[in-house]
Write a protein that binds this DNA or RNA. Sequence first.
DNA 1: GCCGTTTTCGGCCCGACTGTTTTCAGTCG
Length: 570
Amino acid sequence: MRNFELAKIFYEIADFLEIREVEFKPRAYEKAARVLGTLEKDAGEIYKDGGLKALEDIPGVGKHIALKIEEFIKTGRIKEYEKLKKKCPVDMEALTAVEGLGPKMIKVLYQKLKIRNLKDLEKAAKDGKIRKLEKFGEKSEKNILQGIAFLKKGKGRFSLGFVLPLVGKIIRELKELKEVQEISPAGSIRRMKETIGDIDILAISKNPEKVMDFFVNRSGVEKVWAKGPTKSSVRLREGLDCDLRVIKKESFGAALQYFTGNKDHNILTRRLAMNKGLKLNEYGVFRGKKRIAGRTEKEVYQAIGLPYIEPELRTNTGEIEAALKGHLPKIISYNDILGDLQVHTKWSDGSDTIEGIAEAAKKMGYQYIAITDHTGDLKIAGGLDEERLLKQMEEIDKINKKFKNLKILKGCEVNIRKDGSLDMPDEILAKLDIVLAAVHSGFKTDKDSMTKRMIKAMENPNVDVIVHPTGRVLFRRGPYQLDFEEILKAAKRTKTALEINAFPDRLDLKDTDIRQAVEAGIKLVINTDSHHQNQFHYMELGIAQARRGWAEKKDILNTQPVEKLLENFL
DNA sequence: GCCGTTTTCGGCCCGACTGTTTTCAGTCG
């Protein structure tokens, strides 16, 4: 994928230009980078099929950026980028990832303290050198150290949303080999964990050598750690490792079971087997030397006295006890969702028209879709004022007439201000089908004020859903300080739903929050927060999150048909 | 540098918050 490399370079160019106080160009490069990052087709392919002209058709890409893309495809480098980087040779990507650190501060840190990377930065902060700089102080130094610590926690891990397409591609390629009879992801990917350390894949084949040969010689393999007939391990270009195991048909279920559950889940299942006088390993369930199960996972679980346990639940967080008692939840399935309730359009910071979104929703097989653009205060995101929101509502009425079997719901995403008030008057909100409310500023507010702020918003009868309720962003910042139990109580009292935001780096609520909410009887919705129709498929990530949080279909409002759904939002 | 029923130049719709420099620059969404 050249797109990610190009996006990274353009983001950096934007930062370098920002440092030089060039006007407007940084925004242009950022936009091009952002669009490239969400493109399905590789820029190399686009260029091959349609040349410069096709590149210029990418939104945000004009003549000059198209030429730079061409240069990169032909030579593997972009001269102007290298020139800029020479003037300020810092690891911009790593440094800007520290929360609160932007290009201007990075420039000062480089000029005064020769800080080029995270290591330099951490040392300087620990040595107390940063607080002495002009415009910096003790607090900035502390924040920098906290930011670095946060980054370190996520180091070497990748978001599920990034890894899933990669795994899909590897599996598709392997599947095409006639030697591969069956293939499945295992490990944390199969459990759909929100971040992934490495990729595990299992396959059945009678000719493992051929399969392994293909696997280690794929393009995209950077290094071969090990290669044998049953197991091979490689480092992928994207920076993570991928293991492939080839097993025999009769052991496939046992191997899947063995390589999918986390360590504690596996210890418990093996203990259960032992108590029954059986042995469970990756080859099967054995009584003495006789294999009594192993072909399918269902068979394996059955043999040790358990019902089938969904992969997402296999984390030893009570699923085995529940299974033994017959109390396993009937978790929501991947095709239960009937519509997406958070989507942005051109009217604010999205890139599609309402009509385009509606078409895409039909393709997803949805029965409804809510248009929920930003409002008032969030100007950079094109926040709608009253007049524009009213106009959009009229527009939706018109478009609705063109669609059969799809209802476009009128909505918006209002900002919860610091005092808990909203940035759109109640009489306007009352006209909408659905009102989402969210915190977009003042993340560092203390726990008590933040909790009160959110509860005040929930008490507004127009507010139907609190979206991305904890504000965390994977690898970038933790949740804001919040008394979650109080939030749950308020949600129950005010009949406000909470969102499971499916956007790959949000996944907010997280699994443990969801489980707590489900236990408290809170209604949830799963939304993608799409800003482009090719983000609709993120829904899978949100559903996975819900499944990991033991949510059932009945807990998720957007599994209901539209009339019933809207009753919740009166 | 991109974009355009303002079409080849002149816009690019920012506002809140934070920390620090007590008046504002930098960051974020």
